[in-house]
């Protein structure tokens, strides 16, 4: 089999409410391989698409715990084992003084894990994506809301899916070249 003729069909909506309604109808119709594109996060869309990806919060949690433990361990090791100094007669293992840095390293590693984990799970950076072949898709960064039903879906049929999308009364439907 050669390359599929299409990446998918892209429907354009002018507001998030219509997009959410369209996603619900598409799911009811049985479509699964689809994604939505909005200028800003719309939580209802993620719910309607049944995106249940909990991997990123877990990565951030693990990053935070690792950062906190590493920050504390670093201070413990430097001030009690590697280079012990008597500071005003305080114990070498002065935990209250270690807390601010432990907090900072917790946040630091959690934040870095969030960014890197997000990029890894997104598959970014992606030098080429077929969606950008659709000229109107650039409006997804402005004021339009898009639903793309992808050709890999089991129910996908160029004519049938096109009619289905048109019944949702979008502003436009365009074919996305692969």
């Amino acid at each position: 089999m050669s390359r599929p003729a299409l990446y998918g069909l892209l429907a354009e909506f002018t507001n998030p409410t219509d997009l959410v309604a369209a996603v619900h109808k598409a799911r009811e119709a049985g479509y699964r391989a689809m994604d939505a594109y909005t200028p800003y996060p719309v939580e209802e869309v993620a719910e309607a698409l049944h995106v249940h990806d909990r991997r990123l919060p877990l990565i951030v949690l693990i990053g935070g715990i690792v950062g906190g433990c590493a920050g504390y361990a670093l201070q413990f090791w430097t001030s009690t084992i590697d280079y012990p100094i008597n500071i005003g007669g305080r114990p070498l293992h002065s935990w209250p003084a270690f807390i601010p840095i432990t907090f900072e390293t917790t946040i630091l590693v959690a934040a870095i894990s969030a960014v890197l984990g997000m990029l890894a799970l997104n598959g970014l950076p992606t030098p080429y994506h077929p969606l950008f072949n659709a000229p109107r898709f650039a409006l997804a960064t402005d004021d339009r809301f898009f639903l793309c039903i992808e050709a890999t879906d089991a129910l996908f049929d160029e004519q049938e899916t096109l009619r289905f999308l048109q019944r949702l009364e979008p502003r436009s439907v365009s074919e996305v070249e692969p």
Partner: peptide
């Protein structure tokens, strides 16, 4: 709470 404690504890 920690800010108050840490500063007072450190100054002693």
């Amino acid at each position: 709470a920690l800010s108050q404690f840490l500063i007072i504890w450190a100054a002693n």
